[in-house]
């Protein structure tokens, strides 16, 4: 019965689009998530997504049809600034993130409120923040754009994997022995910004952090090497997103929060398993 219903849904292109985009975004975000969690930048996803929200509000007011033209550059600039202040900071990393995040959210909402052209303001805000069902209303162009950008992100990650590892594990050592750490930090910042703008379609700005940190944290409960943690979090993230999307379609729940709920469940499972494993060892 459920299977019949599911196979019926899977024939619709919008469901196929949602699954493709969901898998790609969760793969990208989980790859970078490991680095972000380890660099103590778990909240950068949250901060940047609010920046992207603010930028979206501005572009909506300006009446731009394709808001990527503003959102992506603004988010990249903020990502670069945030990761840079983390290194030699007058305002420490977490405070800077909190400041930019709250500021952008408030200003974005303010701008939307003052200059709004839409009849359903709170509905708009809600869907930008929580993603609501926008992943089910993707156009073909958006899907293609998402595929291209995620391909770039994955390529960059594979190509620079060893560099990202060195820079994350011990930046001072990497720099002292001749790795151009500032270049790779910049690259990490850009990739993160791209992922966050992509992910806003899927889970909305509030829940992006979940997509970034949960798979990494779950994987770190059990696996011991950087490579296995990365691979595990990628697989886990894809599985959770697929499950979340399917459940939300069948049960009619909001996509973003359903995915996060699945992620939380997976984290708890991994956590319990790690206790169990440690218990056996002793």
């Amino acid at each position: 019965m459920i299977l019949e219903k599911l196979s019926l849904y899977l024939e619709y292109p919008f469901v196929q689009y949602a699954l493709i985009v969901g898998v790609l975004i969760s793969l990208c975000s989980s790859l970078l998530g490991v680095i972000l969690v380890l660099k103590r930048f778990s909240f950068i996803g949250d901060g940047l997504s609010h920046v992207a929200f603010g930028a979206m509000a501005v572009s909506a007011v300006l009446g731009l049809t394709n808001d990527m033209t503003i959102v992506l550059p603004v988010t990249i600039i903020c990502a670069v600034l945030l990761l840079r202040t983390g290194q030699n900071a007058k305002i420490k990393g977490d405070a800077a993130i909190a400041m930019i995040s709250v500021g952008a959210l408030a200003l974005g909402y303010l701008i939307m409120n003052i200059f709004s052209t839409s009849a359903n303001l709170s509905g708009d805000v809600c869907s930008t923040l929580f993603g609501s069902t926008s992943i089910l209303t993707l156009t073909k162009i958006e899907v293609v754009l998402c595929i291209i950008l995620s391909a770039l992100v994955i390529l960059a990650f594979v190509f620079f994997y060893n560099k990202f590892f060195s820079v994350t594990f011990d930046e001072a050592f990497a720099k002292a022995t001749g790795t151009k750490t500032s270049v790779y930090n910049l690259l990490i910042a850009i990739v993160i910004a791209v992922i966050i703008v992509l992910a806003m379609n899927l889970v909305g700005s509030l829940l992006i952090s979940a997509l970034v940190i949960f798979p990494a944290l779950s994987a770190m409960r059990i696996f011991k090497s950087f490579r296995s943690v990365t691979i595990c979090s990628a697989i886990l993230s894809i599985v959770c997103s697929l499950l979340g999307i399917l459940v939300s379609i069948l049960a009619g729940t909001p996509v973003g929060s359903t995915i996060v709920a699945v992620q939380i469940a997976a984290f708890l499972l991994f956590w319990i398993f790690s206790f169990f494993k440690r218990g056996v060892k002793k």
């Binding site: 060893n162 594990f169 050592f173 022995t177």
Partner: peptide
Amino acid sequence: VQRDFPASVWEIVLSGCQG
């Protein structure tokens, strides 16, 4: 950061060649 970093000894030693 290093105190709870999931990395194997092999990965860390090899990263010395990165430069």
